[in-house]
Structure formats: C-alpha cells, structure tokens
Amino acid sequence: MKSAGITQWNDSYPSKEIIWQDIIKKELRLYGDHYEASVTVSKHERTIFIQRLVVHSQHQRSGIARFILTDIIRQEKVNSEVDQLKISTNHSNIPVQKLLTSLNFIPCRKYLIPNREQFGDFIEFIYPLRIFK
C-alpha cells in the first residue's frame, strides 16, 4: 500500500494486538490455500462491519478482494438479522473505492479517525440489504 501511495495503514496499524483480538473474537476470516487474503467481519446490532481487508501483494488485482466482498454479501443477504454492511477506506485508496462502487456499495460519509488524522479523510460505504422504514 505504501508503494502505491495509499496512506491507510502504517507500521503501528493494524497492530499484532488488534489482529489477535480479531482471532479471539472469531471475526478474522482467511482466504486462499496459503492464506493469500484476510478480512475482519464483525456484527453490531443490525450492521455487519467489514474491516482490515488485505490481499497479499503477489495476489493483488487477481479478483480475491472482489470474491471476498461478494462472499460476504451473499452470506448476509440471507441473514434477516442484518440490514446493512459497512466498510471504510482511505481517500487515497482509489482501487478499493472503485471496487466498492462496482459492487453497489454507496459512499455515505467522510470522516477522520482519531489518532490517525495524518492519513486524511476516510470514506464510509454502505451496502443496504433491507429497505429501512
């Protein structure tokens, strides 16, 4: 990401402690025969949060990220307890923004993350699964 000019992560985020918590909470999903990609998926109330989607650099642009997001969408469409999916990315991560919009995620707000303001705006995308009343 750094070599591509994407200023979303650094040497301290995500930390080993954060990843360890993802594992303990059973929210980390691994993809590929040799763990070429991973993502954290958590639920809060009626929303699924997708975080820390990462694909090994040797496998980027191979469709793995699209597969992962499509897989999550497919799984959650049948979950009547979930109304929407949310995922955020940095303003500099144009490839992920394009991927999300191609999958019909809708950009809904920009915000700064506390203690990570140096990265600039993050953009939150939603994927509605149910019509809100």
Rank of each mutant, 00 (worst) to 15 (best):
H44K: 15
W9T: 00
N104L: 13
V55H: 00
S80G: 06
D71N: 11
I68G: 04
H44P: 02
G63C: 12
K86C: 02
Y31D: 02
I48W: 03
K77M: 13
Y35R: 13
A65N: 13
L103V: 13
I72S: 07
K2A: 07
P14S: 08
V82T: 13
Y111P: 09
Q58C: 07
E45R: 06
T70I: 01
V82A: 08
N90I: 00
K133A: 12
F119M: 10
K77D: 11
Y127W: 06
E45Q: 05
I48L: 05
N115V: 07
N90P: 04
F49S: 12
E45C: 06
D83Q: 06
H91V: 01
L28A: 14
S62L: 11
W9Y: 03
K25G: 04
E36M: 12
H91R: 01
R29M: 11
V96N: 03
L103G: 14
Q75A: 04
L69E: 12
V41A: 00
S80D: 08
W9P: 00
I123A: 01
R130K: 14
R61C: 14
S102K: 13
I126D: 02
I24M: 12
I18L: 12
I18N: 10
L30E: 11
I126V: 09
P95M: 14
R130L: 05
L100F: 05
I126N: 01
Q21S: 12
S62Q: 15
V41L: 02
P128H: 06
N93L: 03
L129N: 06
P95Y: 07
I94E: 02
W9N: 00
L85F: 11
S88C: 03
F119K: 04
R74G: 14
I68S: 06
L53A: 03
P14N: 10
I6F: 01
I48S: 03
L112F: 15
L99K: 01
A37W: 08
P107Q: 13
D33N: 12
R74Y: 15
Q58E: 15
Q84I: 11
S12I: 13
G5V: 10
M1Y: 07
D11Y: 00
Q60R: 10
K77V: 10
K2H: 09
